[in-house]
């Protein structure tokens, strides 16, 4: 998902007997559905894992501004321009809320930013794909935000209080994101032949990258088992991917668009669709840095960070002078 490949530091889930008394008490609180708060005792692994996961999630929001920001200046009507701008602005806000949640664990936002720029921290693979046409704004809202919401709604119940509260706010704000995407797709699918072609092309390009957003199968992953025990991951990747496909296929049918998968078929026995897995080699390559837009995305973030340095320093210097003057005046 937005945090696709968070490697935990643990060696799998400890049995109660292996745990220290603190760890046992901590696990008992989580099992009792209590929230862990910043100043509470927590295992080192829990803290580190959370920083990686929330940080990755935050980075994804910020880098995720870029592919959609690519179309703000070319939106076809004033209303579409405002909707898209408000949506991309929300993503900046979501990044901000998530960074703040991670900061409660003792890491600074600037340090996390440096880790993103140096490549030490990752962001979701999906934002390394280009947005080529206006229909991509529809596809991103409909599919990418649709996939994101599927992951974020359960995370509102995650064990770490600040993370859970950030997710509540994010989910509330995001509720219009997927709808505006589908609304664009409806207009395109019902529009001129060129618009319809554009819509189908966008679905073709974003289908598999959207499925990849949930990450590879984690049924046997010890990292995932630990994260689930700690309730910082609520559902398995395969579970969410299946749910996404089952929800999205009828929507594509409604639009009169074709999901680009010959293997797609309703399986009455499992009560869901069978579908073709995405190309995981491509996924790992994109995550490693070899996607179509990785270099541009990081360059854009690096440039914004570098170009903004004098502004951040200038405003801080003024703030300090003002505070000093205020203290002197007392």
């Amino acid at each position: 998902m937005y945090a696709q490949m968070v490697k935990s530091t643990g060696r799998g889930v400890k049995s109660p007997e292996e745990m220290t008394p603190e760890e046992r008490a901590f696990q008992a609180r989580i099992d009792a559905d209590e929230k862990i708060e910043p100043r509470d005792w927590m295992p080192d692994g829990y803290r580190k894992n959370l920083i990686r996961q929330i940080g990755q999630h935050a980075h994804s929001e910020i880098v995720g501004q870029l592919p959609e920001g690519n179309w703000i200046t070319r939106a076809p009507t004033l209303e579409r321009k405002m909707i898209l701008l408000a949506k991309v602005q929300d993503e900046a806000g979501h990044g901000l809320y998530l960074y703040a949640a991670a900061e409660t664990l003792g890491v600074s936002r600037d340090a996390m930013t440096e880790d993103l720029l140096s490549g030490r921290m990752k962001y979701s693979s999906i934002f390394n794909y280009p947005t080529l046409t206006w229909a991509d704004m529809g596809a991103v809202g409909w599919l990418v935000d649709g996939a994101a919401i599927m992951n974020q709604v359960p995370l509102q119940r995650t064990s770490y209080g600040p993370y859970a509260r950030a997710m509540v706010r994010i989910c509330k704000e995001e509720s219009f994101h997927q709808r505006q995407g589908f609304d664009i797709m409806m207009k395109m699918a019902q529009g001129s032949p060129a618009q319809k072609r554009m819509a189908q092309d966008a679905l073709n390009r974003f289908w598999y990258p959207s499925l990849m957003m949930f990450g590879p199968s984690d049924a046997t992953s010890v990292h995932s088992a630990q994260s689930m025990a700690w309730r910082i991951k609520i559902n398995s990747n395969d579970e969410l991917r299946q749910k996404f496909v089952d929800q999205t296929v009828p929507q594509a049918e409604y639009l009169g668009l074709t999901v680009p998968d010959d293997g797609l078929a309703w399986n009455a026995e499992k009560g869901g669709y069978d579908f073709t897995e995405p190309d995981w080699e491509e996924f790992f390559a994109v995550l490693k840095g070899d996607g179509p837009c990785n270099a541009e995305r990081l360059q854009a973030r690096q440039k914004a960070w570098d170009d903004g340095a004098w502004v951040r320093e200038g405003l801080l210097a003024h703030g300090r002078k003002r505070r000093a003057a205020g203290i002197a005046a007392q």
Binding site: Q89, G93, L96, Y97, A100, E103, R109, R165, A166, R169, E173, R312, L315, L316, H318, G319, R320, R322, R323
Partner: peptide, 23 residues
Amino acid sequence: VGSLHAPDAETAIRNGRDVYTRR
């Protein structure tokens, strides 16, 4: 409602307005 970064109190209030009262 949440946190944010700002260089001084006045800017923090304005940032609070822009970040946390958009709706």
